[in-house]
């Protein structure tokens, strides 16, 4: 299909979204990510049965924690699609990208940049 999606989306492959833990999401923000989203299989069609449900709960937990620390819960999102829905994959990437653009950079990254003298 050769579909395009925003070039700044970095894909991290995992065997199942159920592999993604809360700490992975938080560390991504500590390392400067502006947003994190998980794309899992359709609910009910997880090969491991519960993986994408677990992922959703962890995303919701991450949203609460990120809200409390001032990063903002909207920077994390869970999406579901089937492996045959490439256009939807590209659409989710655009949707998340637009949301993050509107929110601006991760405030923790800006603080780290200032500390390292990299601020614009």
């Amino acid at each position: 299909m050769r579909l395009n999606y925003p070039a700044h989306v970095r894909v991290v492959r995992v065997p199942c979204t159920g592999k993604v833990d809360l700490i992975h999401i938080l560390r991504a923000f500590e390392k400067g990510a502006d947003g994190v989203y998980l794309v899992g299989c359709m609910e009910g069609s997880c090969f491991y049965e519960q993986g994408n449900f677990r992922a959703r709960k962890r995303v919701e937990h991450a949203q609460r924690l990120l809200e409390a620390v001032g990063t903002g819960g909207q920077r994390v999102q869970m999406y579901n699609l089937s492996s045959g829905e490439a256009p939807l994959f590209a659409q989710y990437a655009r949707e998340m990208s637009e949301r993050i653009m509107a929110l601006g950079p991760n405030p923790a990254k800006l603080a780290m940049d200032v500390r390292q003298g990299k601020a614009a």
């Binding site: 938080l26 500590e30 990120l66 620390v69 001032g70 990063t71 923790a108």
Partner: peptide, 10 residues
């Protein structure tokens, strides 16, 4: 990790 993010944000 959450606390580090909090302090950076502050």
């Amino acid at each position: 990790s959450a606390l580090r993010l909090y302090f950076l944000n502050q």
